[in-house]
Simulated scan of single mutants.
Amino acid sequence: MGNRERRTVFVTVGTTCFDALVKAVDSSQVKEALLQKGYTDLVIQMGRGTYVPSKVSRDGTLQVDYFTFSPSIADYVRDTSLVISHAGSGSIFETLRRGEPLIVVVNEDLMDNHQSELAEELAARKHLFCARPQTLGDTIQRMGIDTLTPYVPGDAKPVVTLINKFLGFPDD
């Protein structure tokens, strides 16, 4: 193992079932893209999902581990180099507040998908990258973490404007 620095990718689906995301992360395309970007470990929080990822990567260089639930994802987010998350606002803002690079993967199986609008708006503001399960590998290959803008909590106005837009209220 030597003194090679560990670079962990943490994947979270929150309390939901989002097997499409876990399957995407478990695919050889995504694992290959992560390896090419220099990541060494993959920790998957799989929630209520039934799809179980494989612990051994094809060439054995990406260390994979998974679990179902944790009382807090904060410990995992703190020790990570990249977070791949479902589009739940709690997971998104917890990760952004910690200043970690984030790819939000939108669950297209959810009918009423306000989450995708939030993720796309934050992606447009360059706070995170937005993907679908089927585009995750390409997103990882193309992402430039240095292009992200830190999210500064405290300025509520843009978020309030966004929420008002979702609820159909006019702008001030």
Rank of each mutant, 00 (worst) to 15 (best):
G2H: 14
R7N: 00
R7Q: 00
R7A: 02
F10P: 10
V11C: 07
V11Y: 00
F18K: 06
F18M: 04
F18G: 05
A20I: 00
L21Y: 11
L21Q: 08
K23M: 07
V25D: 10
D26P: 08
K31P: 04
E32I: 05
E32D: 09
L34T: 09
L35P: 02
K37H: 07
K37T: 05
G38K: 13
Y39L: 08
T40N: 13
T40L: 13
L42M: 14
I44S: 15
Q45R: 11
Q45D: 10
R48Q: 10
R48L: 06
G49A: 06
T50K: 08
V52Y: 09
K55V: 15
S57M: 10
R58P: 11
R58V: 12
R58Y: 11
G60H: 14
G60Q: 15
T61W: 06
L62I: 01
Q63V: 09
Q63M: 11
D65G: 08
T68S: 09
F69A: 15
S70A: 15
P71Y: 15
P71V: 14
P71R: 14
S72A: 08
S72V: 06
I73G: 09
A74I: 06
Y76L: 14
Y76W: 13
Y76V: 09
R78D: 15
R78I: 15
R78S: 15
L82D: 06
V83W: 06
I84F: 02
S85W: 00
S85N: 00
S85F: 00
A87P: 04
G88Q: 01
S89K: 12
G90L: 10
S91Q: 01
F93M: 02
E94C: 05
E94D: 12
T95I: 01
T95A: 01
L96F: 01
L96H: 02
L96C: 08
I103W: 03
V106S: 08
N107Y: 00
E108K: 14
D109L: 11
L110C: 01
L110V: 05
M111E: 12
D112S: 05
Q115N: 01
Q115H: 03
S116E: 11
S116K: 08
S116C: 04
E117R: 09
A119I: 05
E120Q: 04
E121I: 00
L122V: 02
A123Q: 05
A124D: 05
K126V: 04
L128Q: 03
F129V: 07
F129G: 08
C130P: 03
A131P: 07
R132E: 15
P133V: 11
L136V: 14
G137P: 03
I140D: 05
R142H: 10
M143L: 13
T147P: 14
P150M: 00
P150I: 00
G154H: 03
D155Y: 12
A156M: 12
K157H: 10
V159P: 04
V160H: 10
T161L: 10
T161E: 12
T161P: 02
L162F: 14
N164V: 15
K165W: 13
F166E: 04
F166P: 00
F169L: 13
F169A: 10
P170G: 09
D172C: 11
